[in-house]
Amino acid sequence: MTTTALSVRDMLVVYEDFAALNRVSLDVQHQESFGIVGESGSGKSTLLRAISGLSAFQEGSLTVDSRNFNGRKRDREFYRTVQMVFQDPYGSLHPRQTVDRLLLEPLAIHGFDNVDARIARALDEVGLGSGFRFRYSHQLSGGQRQRIAIARALIVEPKILLLDEPTSALDASIQAEILNLLEQARRDRSLTFVMVSHDLGVISHMCERLAVMKSGEIVEILPADALEKRQFSADYTRQLLVASEGFRRD
């Protein structure tokens, strides 16, 4: 039996008089990998930021692990459960800290013991040896940085990982490596993923179900294999699919 890991009900995010998120609802099951796709400005990142508490939502409700949250306030327990990986691996690491300090920070906040072993294990898990431990972020490549960002998220042993376009800043070959790494981590740790991307290929590869968003609303929610079978009802989904197949010379 599956249970709900994360539930969003009628979430409303308004900037000035613009509704960035217009009463969005969705449920993500435990250990599910859930994708959110849509064009730029469709509200997919806003949704992720509102869930993580980086921006506030004005109305609606958010339930994580059967606990309710609203506005921007999240407690430490929430951040133990939910971790986020950001789009830009160049901006998401503190420029003046070594990898060691970067990974120590979340451990210190949540009062973990045995930090040395945990940091070593985390680096190992993302495929970087201990040789990277005392490097600064500017000494790492984009893919290596994103691995560090993933290690930082995983090190507090969260149950849910929010992924905001985790590979869109990386080139194609690195993309595949990072996606495989994430997939491996999900299997090993029984994680729940909520992944935002404008790349339908990435989403259909990684996710079991996906929501298609447009203008701050969810157009439809469908299983990933429905994309291949072209079993969708919304016209917009078809447009998005055609667009993602790229330009074809006929």
Binding site: R74, M84, E105, I109, R152
Partner: peptide
């Protein structure tokens, strides 16, 4: 507005 600050918020700092 930097992502590493967002990451720190996301750690519960």
């Amino acid at each position: 507005t930097r992502a590493y600050v967002h990451a720190a918020i996301g750690m519960g700092r």
